[in-house]
Simulated assay, not measured.
Amino acid sequence: MKLARISLIFGLLLIFQSCGSGQVEENTKKRAEIIAVHDEVMPKMGQLKSLEKSALQKVEELSAMDSVDSVQIEALKNLALDLDKAYEGMFVWMRQYETEDGDQTPEEIKAYLDEQLILVMEVNKNMKTALSKADSLLKIQ
C-alpha cells in the first residue's frame, strides 16, 4: 500500500514538472481526494469480515434452536451477503484503479479521475451502509 502511494506521488510529481498546467494541478488534487475517500474506509475491511462471520455464526445458532425465526435468519443471511459485497467491492475497485497516467492527456486523465471518484464514493457508501446495518442487526441479537 505504501509502495503504491510512493509510486503515485512520484508519478504525479513527474507529470507536474513536465506539464505545469492548471489541469495537472486539478488532477493531482482529484487523485488526493480519491485516495482520501479510499483511506476513510480501508481500515474497516477487517471489521467487515469479522461482522460477516458473526452474522453467519448467529444464523447457525438460530437454525439449531427449536423455535426457528426464519425472518431473523434471512435478515442475517442478507447482512452477511451485504458485508461480503462491500468487502469485495473495495478489492474490485482497487484492482482496476490506475495510478499511472500513461500517454493520456490531462483532459482524459480528468475524465478518468472523475469516474474513479464516483466509483470509490460508491464503495465507501456501500461499506458504511453494511457496517451500519450490521451494527443495528447484531446489537439486537
Rank of each mutant, 00 (worst) to 15 (best):
M1C: 07
K2F: 05
L3E: 11
R5K: 05
I6A: 13
I6W: 10
I9M: 07
I9A: 06
C19T: 11
C19S: 10
G20A: 00
S21M: 02
S21N: 04
G22Y: 05
N27F: 04
T28E: 07
K29A: 11
K29R: 12
H38A: 12
D39H: 00
E40I: 01
V41R: 04
P43F: 05
P43K: 07
K44T: 04
Q47Y: 05
Q47P: 05
S50Q: 12
S50D: 13
L51V: 01
E52G: 05
K53H: 14
K53P: 06
A55P: 12
Q57V: 01
Q57Y: 03
A64D: 13
M65I: 02
M65A: 11
M65E: 14
D69N: 15
Q72D: 10
A75P: 07
A75I: 01
L79D: 10
A80R: 11
L81I: 04
L81P: 08
L81E: 15
D82L: 06
D82Q: 13
L83F: 00
E88H: 09
E88S: 12
W93Y: 09
M94N: 13
R95A: 05
Q96K: 13
Y97D: 14
E98C: 08
E98M: 11
D101C: 10
G102C: 02
G102S: 02
G102V: 00
D103C: 06
Q104M: 15
Q104T: 03
Q104K: 15
P106R: 04
P106T: 02
E107S: 13
E107A: 14
E107K: 14
E108D: 15
Y112Q: 12
L113W: 01
E115S: 15
Q116R: 15
Q116E: 15
L117I: 02
I118Q: 12
L119M: 12
E122I: 00
V123A: 00
K125S: 03
N126P: 08
N126L: 01
K128H: 02
T129W: 08
A130F: 04
A130E: 10
S132K: 14
K133W: 09
A134K: 15
D135Q: 14
L137H: 02
L138E: 01
K139M: 06
